[in-house]
Simulated assay, not measured.
Amino acid sequence: MGDSYVTFLVLGIVLVVVDGQLIYRSGKGYLKRAAYDDEQVGGMMKLTAVLFHLVVLGLLALVSIIEINTGDPVKNVVVKLGVVLLLLALAHGVTMAILARIRDRQMQQQLADQMAEEHRIYEERHAHVGEPRPAPKIESPYSAP
């Protein structure tokens, strides 16, 4: 019992740490393409990686105390690792969805800023500096001909 428990925990922790590092490294490159600066990307990815590790290590701890009795300690470890892998995949997918949402918001903000700047430049080019613009004529349906 003791050896299989320790084996499960060691393998589970290794899987969580490896996946967390993959998320951290690939997430940095993913967010950099959305024109975040290195400091912003680093900070966001550190927070994301810490949250990922805490959640998945917590799930690993919960799975570790579940009693599974297949009659073979090796099979018990394999079953528990299967559950951990499924939970790890779920957590990985959720983390990537969060990063995609952050990136999409940044790209939308960039597009809005770019459009506002282009509009400002257009207005400057077409405005007659110093000349008041005439008010538009509005004809009333009640005015006499």
Score class of each variant (00 low, 15 high):
residue 58 G to V: 05
residue 88 L to F: 06
residue 53 H to C: 09
residue 56 V to F: 03
residue 90 L to H: 00
residue 82 G to C: 01
residue 67 E to T: 13
residue 85 L to I: 12
residue 99 L to K: 05
residue 72 D to E: 08
residue 59 L to C: 09
residue 84 V to R: 00
residue 70 T to A: 15
residue 59 L to M: 14
residue 95 T to E: 02
residue 81 L to H: 02
residue 91 A to C: 08
residue 47 L to H: 07
residue 46 K to A: 05
residue 98 I to Y: 12
residue 58 G to N: 08
residue 59 L to N: 12
residue 49 A to H: 10
residue 69 N to T: 11
residue 55 V to W: 07
residue 66 I to D: 03
residue 54 L to Q: 11
residue 69 N to C: 02
residue 74 V to H: 01
residue 57 L to C: 09
residue 47 L to S: 12
residue 96 M to G: 00
residue 62 L to N: 10
residue 43 G to W: 03
residue 54 L to T: 14
residue 56 V to E: 13
residue 53 H to S: 09
residue 51 L to N: 15
residue 84 V to A: 13
residue 56 V to C: 05
residue 57 L to N: 08
residue 59 L to H: 06
residue 63 V to M: 04
residue 77 V to P: 06
residue 49 A to M: 15
residue 97 A to P: 00
residue 78 V to I: 15
residue 79 V to D: 05
residue 42 G to L: 05
residue 85 L to M: 14
residue 65 I to G: 00
residue 60 L to C: 11
residue 57 L to A: 08
residue 47 L to Q: 12
residue 61 A to R: 02
residue 43 G to T: 12
residue 44 M to R: 11
residue 59 L to K: 13
residue 95 T to H: 05
residue 77 V to W: 06
residue 79 V to Y: 14
residue 90 L to D: 02
residue 63 V to I: 15
residue 47 L to R: 11
residue 81 L to G: 00
residue 93 G to N: 13
residue 43 G to S: 13
residue 55 V to T: 14
residue 64 S to N: 06
residue 87 L to F: 14
residue 95 T to F: 03
residue 94 V to K: 05
residue 74 V to P: 01
residue 43 G to Y: 08
residue 75 K to R: 11
residue 94 V to E: 09
residue 53 H to P: 00
residue 90 L to Y: 08
residue 48 T to R: 10
residue 76 N to L: 08
residue 86 L to C: 06
residue 78 V to N: 06
residue 65 I to M: 06
residue 63 V to T: 12
residue 66 I to W: 11
residue 47 L to F: 01
residue 80 K to D: 03
residue 69 N to V: 09
residue 45 M to K: 10
residue 83 V to C: 03
residue 43 G to V: 03
residue 91 A to L: 01
residue 99 L to Y: 03
residue 71 G to I: 06
residue 59 L to P: 00
residue 97 A to C: 04
residue 90 L to W: 06
residue 42 G to A: 07
residue 68 I to V: 15
residue 90 L to N: 00
residue 46 K to M: 04
residue 41 V to G: 06
residue 59 L to A: 14
residue 52 F to T: 07
residue 83 V to T: 09
residue 97 A to T: 10
residue 68 I to N: 09
residue 65 I to D: 00
residue 57 L to V: 11
residue 82 G to H: 02
residue 97 A to D: 07
residue 82 G to E: 02
residue 64 S to V: 01
residue 48 T to N: 10
residue 40 Q to T: 15
residue 66 I to P: 04
residue 62 L to I: 14
residue 61 A to E: 02
residue 54 L to C: 07
residue 71 G to H: 07
residue 90 L to F: 14
residue 56 V to L: 15
residue 97 A to L: 15
residue 71 G to Y: 06
residue 76 N to A: 10
residue 90 L to Q: 00
residue 81 L to Q: 06
residue 50 V to Y: 12
residue 76 N to W: 01
residue 58 G to Y: 07
residue 43 G to N: 14
residue 59 L to I: 15
residue 77 V to C: 08
residue 93 G to H: 10
residue 91 A to K: 04
residue 68 I to H: 11
residue 55 V to H: 08
residue 54 L to V: 15
